[in-house]
């Protein structure tokens, strides 16, 4: 168990380091853009007529305070970190005076819910089908499933998404095409809201699963067809070990190790992948919010979303790292 403690501390150190470097980069990037948010705001509000210079000076001062742009670069850096630690990114510009953190907190559950469900669903389905297809490679049904999964794989995501919209929203309109849930329902744990949530998520989740399935399927199938030639699988077959036991504990278990890394990666990529999905299906998540923020030039909102995604991506990888030793004992103790 001491070995696991050392492992945990090393990984935790790496996690903190990655977050630190990532946030520093986002500070450098935002501070080296030619767009000065303060001047941009002043320009926008003084567009229609002259305002006296004193008022502008006061405005500039309070905006700088708001955006954390007072003093020299080092002072700004400290202010920035103070804000990151308490996750307060100031007020949003486009939705003034709502604070950035409140906007993110409202959008985050939608994205996380949608993408965790679809990513995990894709992963489980792809690995299960791929594993079975690799093990029972003569089965016609599984070969057909493979062809279907591969057929969707190379199609660009937005085309699949639009195809689904056209088929189920227009030609055979049985599913809602936009939004996260019906808006006139009371949010919370009540049946009408939850069922509306479920119905609204069918199309976005289906689109993500269809496109993502092929990759996992192919990966798992080739991993499994390698593992089945390993001595321990042949030996278990010679030993008359139950076929299902061989498939589950010998073949799948050994093939899953690299797939888990892949799962960590795609869970981490949730924040990027969401943008097109949420845009196409009008889903009120982080990706939607980010696009809005970029269009509106909402400096602090963009910075807030970036920081949150850095932390989230690293946390996902960290969590998967903690699960690794349970899956493969060879990683456990160095």
């Amino acid at each position: 168990m001491r070995g696991y403690g050392v492992y945990l501390l090393t990984r935790l150190g790496q996690f903190v380091l990655v977050v630190f470097i990532g946030i520093n980069i986002s500070f450098i990037v935002t501070h080296s853009t030619p767009i000065d948010p303060v001047e941009a705001t002043i320009a926008a509000s003084t567009m229609f007529g002259a305002v006296n210079p004193e008022a502008i000076a006061i405005m500039r001062q309070s905006l700088k305070e708001l955006y954390g742009l007072e003093g020299g670069l080092f002072e700004q850096y400290l202010t920035f970190w103070r804000r990151v630690v308490v996750l307060d990114f100031g007020p949003s510009l486009s939705a003034f005076p709502a604070p950035v953190s409140a906007l993110i907190a409202r959008a985050l559950p939608w994205t996380v819910g949608l993408l965790v469900v679809s990513t995990v669903l894709t992963w489980i389905l792809g690995n299960l089908l791929g594993g079975l297809a690799g093990y029972y490679h003569q089965s016609r049904t599984l070969r057909f499933a493979g062809v279907v999964a591969m057929a969707f794989h190379p199609i660009p995501y937005y085309i699949v998404a639009f195809m689904l919209l056209i088929v189920f929203g227009y030609l055979w309109p049985i599913l809602p095409i936009s939004g996260g849930a019906q808006i006139n329902l009371q949010r919370g744990f009540n049946l009408p809201f939850l069922s509306s949530l479920l119905i609204h998520s069918i199309l976005p989740i289906t689109s993500l699963v269809l496109v993502g399935l092929g990759g996992w399927f192919m990966g798992m199938r080739s991993l499994v067809s390698n593992v089945v030639t390993e001595d321990y699988v042949t030996y278990a077959e010679l030993g008359g070990v139950d076929r299902r036991r061989i498939l589950a504990s010998y073949v799948m278990r050994n093939s899953l190790v690299p797939q888990v890394t892949g799962l960590a990666m795609s869970l981490g990529a949730i924040f990027n992948g969401a943008i097109i999905t949420e845009q196409v299906f009008g889903y009120p998540g982080i990706g939607h919010l980010l696009i809005q923020a970029v269009h509106a030039g909402d400096y602090s909102l963009v910075l807030g979303i970036t920081t949150i995604s850095i932390i989230a991506v690293s946390a996902a990888v960290f969590l998967i790292d903690l699960l690794y030793p349970l899956l493969d004992p060879r990683v456990r103790v160095r």
Partner: peptide, 12 residues
């Protein structure tokens, strides 16, 4: 078996 080194499942 030949190569009994690897006849045992490495994860169990």
């Amino acid at each position: 078996m030949q190569g009994s080194m690897s006849v045992l499942n490495p994860v169990r």
